[in-house]
Design a protein around this nucleic acid. Structure first.
Length: 513
RNA sequence: GCUUCUCUAGCUCAAUUGGCAGAGCAGUGGACUCUUAAUCCAUUGGUUCUGGGUUCAAGUCCCAGGGGAAGCACCA
């Protein structure tokens, strides 16, 4: 376990220059570092401070992408990028450089740049950043190129890139060295563009509906707003425990009490639970609250947010989900959780039924039941066991039992259920929302039920939040609320199966160097 | 936390029944003024994750440990 051996192998920061018999990597780094020294000795800076760029590579392609093969232009441009490929052909060097927008070829002619500069270009490595002043042209075969008059090294890479064709495939390395992953894997870059477009689209959609973005505390003195184990920390000066937030619900609803009417927060949220393809200990949730609305308004806006994000990020609202072609713009089905559970088990289930009867159904379906669970919690477990995984197309599962929904308002037509929904797509929960409970007396009773459950052994149950109750006592208007898992929406739109593919730096055990 | 799988050169991957640890790319040297993963010739580079064990012989089999992945469980 503990490795306190003093002999810790050859260290990379050992600058004892002349060791040609090092490993391949060490020898390569030494060679490149030597080049850095040589450049400095020749009065050049291998790490200059800035470069003036006139065009991105995308600009170049947009403006001159249609040039005929074999065209030389007088258009002088300055571009910059990382050298991704290099083809040395005697007195010509072809190099492919890439910036954030595109890749473009450099057509470097010894006759144009001169012998010294040509030799300097020849010495450049894959991975180096360069800035180029030159003219736009196309080769005889029609490849859009910049013909440099000058090539300036902007930053020397002293570590070699991963394989130029295969990229990085080892997932451990991809996630630990995300920088390298992004350099060589176009799919990785695409996933994070989709994530960005999703969040940007959400913000635009919410702005059109008059929502304002707010920021509430990450450090909470009390755990609330969801059922989850928190990360616990300690404030030294105040000498008090604090919890990283597991949800932002209770703070945002305080703002509704304050009259802000329509608020949202894109909130990094922390839950001290397992890591899986669908879970990271820190993840991003977008929560919104809308005064004077109820769960139906919130389901509508959920559809709009995700459908619009698909259009903005992918240019289409038709997605392949679980092997099926799904048109997101079609209305999303809404179906009660008790109906799913009843169909799944073949027994008519309802939270009003006797606890012993429902425990028997659970036993018949190999669903483990804790002693303190009531009928509502067991119905949820039965739903998850018998139905959840089969939901492919976006579907609102509605009417969660009161027992498992301490912050949701009771269904106006059924006192055992709430006006609550969860959005499921491809067997995964993406969102959760409801008509918000705004009666302070009932909310206190629900909190006290939670407190009792906690004392009965449910360590994820909440406690009584006195300040939140005080806020409700001032009066909260009728309100609809929503929480959407941003990471999971990004997974859906990117078409990936692991949450790590849409989190730049997913939580991993620390690497041993 | 449990089960299974996995770890070989900087990267991507081979290695038959346990029998000399290999290739492509990258790198180095050379040729080439229209290449496109350029091509051609030559070539450097290894604590096979770590530590034990079995064996004449271990990348390969066994034990322990470490990293990762998938599934389970928990959750969103």
């Amino acid at each position: 376990m503990s490795d306190e051996s003093p002999a810790n192998g050859p260290s990379s920061d050992d600058p004892t220059g002349d060791d040609p018999a090092g490993s391949g990597l060490e020898a390569e780094k030494l060679r490149r570092l030597q080049q850095v020294d040589d450049l400095r000795a020749a009065g050049q800076n291998p790490y200059p401070y800035r470069f003036d760029r006139t065009h991105t590579l995308g600009d170049i392609r947009a403006e001159w992408g249609e040039l005929e093969p074999g065209t030389e232009t007088e258009h002088a441009v300055s571009v910059a990028g990382r050298i991704m490929l290099k083809r040395d052909s005697g007195k010509l060097i072809f190099a492919t450089i890439r910036d954030r927008t595109d890749e473009v070829q450099l057509f470097i002619s010894k006759a144009v740049v001169g012998d010294d500069e040509f030799a300097a270009v020849k010495a450049l490595d894959l991975g180096d950043w360069v800035g180029v002043d030159g003219t736009v042209m196309t080769t005889r075969k029609g490849e859009l190129s910049v013909k440099p008059e000058r090539v300036e090294l902007l930053s020397k890479a002293v570590r070699p890139l991963p394989d130029k064709w295969h990229g990085l495939s080892d997932v451990d390395t991809r996630f630990r060295q995300r920088y390298a992953d992004l350099i060589v894997n176009a799919d990785a870059r695409r996933n994070f563009e989709i994530r960005h477009e999703t969040v940007a689209s959400f913000r635009r959609t919410l702005a059109t509906h008059g929502f304002i973005e707010v920021e509430t505390p990450v450090l909470h003195p009390e755990v609330g707003g969801a059922h989850a184990r928190p990360f616990t920390t300690h404030h030294n000066a105040l000498d008090m425990p604090l919890y990283l937030r597991i949800a932002v619900e209770l703070y945002l609803k305080r703002l509704i009490v304050g009259g802000m009417e329509r608020v949202y927060e894109i909130a990094r949220t922390f839950r001290n639970e397992g890591v899986s393809t669908r879970h990271n200990p820190e993840f991003t949730m977008m929560e919104l609250y809308q005064a004077f609305g109820d769960w139906n308004d919130v389901m509508d806006i959920t559809e709009e947010l995700i459908t619009t994000a698909a259009r903005d990020a992918l240019g289409t609202t038709e997605l392949e989900i679980g092997g099926q072609q799904i048109e997101l713009a079609d209305p999303w089905p809404r179906k009660r959780m008790v109906d799913y559970a009843s169909e799944g088990t073949g027994v008519d289930l309802h939270p009003s039924m006797p606890i012993d009867d429902i425990r028997k159904v659970a036993a018949d379906h190999d669903v483990f039941v804790e002693s303190y669970w009531g009928p509502g919690k067991i119905i949820e477990e039965l739903f998850e066991k018998t139905a959840e995984a089969d939901i492919v197309r976006p579907t609102f599962v509605t009417g969660h039992p009161v027992e498992i929904s301490p912050l949701a308002r009771v269904d106006r037509n059924d006192p055992h259920l709430t006006e609550r929904f969860e959005l499921f797509v491809d067997g995964r929960e993406l969102a959760n929302g409801y008509s918000e409970l705004n009666d302070p007396v009932e909310q206190r009773a629900r909190f006290e039920d939670e407190q009792a459950a906690k004392e009965a052994g449910n360590d994820e149950a909440g406690t009584v939040d006195e300040d939140y109750l005080r806020a409700l006592e001032y009066g909260m208007p009728p309100t609809g609320g929503l929480g959407i898992g941003i990471d999971r929406v990004a997974m859906l739109l990117a078409g990936v199966d692991s949450i790590k593919e849409v989190i730049l730096f997913p939580t991993l055990r620390p690497e041993v160097f």
